[in-house]
């Protein structure tokens, strides 16, 4: 056993920055972080903690004297009816994410890699344009398209396909939400595809990979961070959307977002239960983001 090399005391002391120096090093980042820090604490941390507290008071209504803490609100979520709502919401959100990916990828690919360069910005703007109108108005527009005598069926019947009764069904929700959130997906995929190294595709072609093999073995892995980020954004926003399910989904379109809305602004006004479901959503979303940071957002050039 050898003793660890000892450093003379005065050198060890001298090597340490003085208290003043260390304070100085602290002050600069603190000053930079202060505005956003205050903002975050005031408008994110404190409200979230409040929701967390309310969620622990079973059946709390505004104006009530708060009862004892308990997990009643959380247990309530596990009743079959609420689990069904949760499951449907997840279905809507996952389906929308998948559809956005399927529809959005070719579009983003085309804009980023195939469209003439001088048109790209214009094409992107055209794609984002619908975001400038109210989401309610867009959902309303889909009513006129999807209703039995609407535009869709006029077109379908013109080409000899029997009309479909899509409005007021889950299919309409998928259509409406995909339309609503597609621009986000296209934007994120575009910025990811724009950075795609074309030379890698050439290298793959050079090694004998046909277009499909190039897509699955190079394009997709290379743009995986974008796919993950876009998917997560669409997933989170569609999980929280209640305009589209309300207007297009018909009688069986209760989602967790609507359920939460009903608890706060509906006649029930069960803030405790609403808060517990909000906490569940916050938890699910945080988890998804954590997963993205851990596994999704890796620079493929820099694995380690």
């Amino acid at each position: 056993m050898t003793a660890p090399p000892t450093v003379p005391r005065e050198i060890a002391l001298a090597a340490k920055p003085s208290l003043g120096q260390r304070l100085g090093q602290l002050i600069e980042p603190l000053t930079l972080l202060l505005p956003s820090g205050v903002w975050l604490v005031l408008f994110l941390v404190i409200p979230t903690l409040l929701i967390a507290e309310i969620s622990l008071v079973p059946g709390l209504r505004p104006g009530d004297v708060p009862g004892a803490y308990g997990l009643g609100n959380y247990l309530q979520i596990f009743q079959p009816v609420y689990l069904r709502v949760l499951f449907r919401s997840l279905n809507f959100a996952l389906g929308t994410t998948g559809l956005c990916l399927i529809v959005g990828f070719p579009v983003a690919y085309w804009i980023a890699l195939m469209a003439p360069k001088r048109w790209r910005t214009l094409l992107l703007v055209v794609f984002i344009l619908p975001l400038w109108t109210s989401s309610l108005l867009r959902a309303y527009a889909w009513i006129t398209i999807l209703r039995s005598s609407g535009l869709l069926n006029v077109v379908l019947q013109a080409v000899g396909i029997p009309g479909q009764n899509i409005l007021n069904s889950p299919a309409a929700v998928y259509v409406g939400m995909t339309y609503s959130f597609l621009p986000y997906m296209v934007l994120i995929l575009y910025s990811s595809l724009e950075k795609l190294d074309i030379r890698l595709l050439e290298a793959a072609a050079d090694l004998g990979a046909n277009p499909a093999q190039r897509f699955w073995q190079v394009t997709v892995p290379q743009t995986l961070p974008g796919i993950a980020a876009g998917g997560l954004l669409v997933f989170i926003t569609s999980l929280g959307d209640f305009v589209v399910p309300t207007l297009l989904g018909g009688a069986s379109s209760m989602t967790i977002a609507r359920l939460i809305y009903n608890q706060f602004l509906g006649p029930t006004r069960n803030w405790g239960f609403g808060s517990s479901m909000s906490m569940l959503l916050i938890l699910a979303v945080s988890l998804a983001i954590a997963l993205l940071i851990r596994y999704g957002d890796r620079n493929p050039e820099n694995y380690s």
């Binding site: 009816v81 709502v85 609507r258 009903n262 029930t268 069960n270």
Partner: peptide, 18 residues
Amino acid sequence: GPEASALYDRYWTEVTSA
């Protein structure tokens, strides 16, 4: 009242999520 109100909400959730 709160009790009936909770019942209403439960049934409503049942109906709209069936």
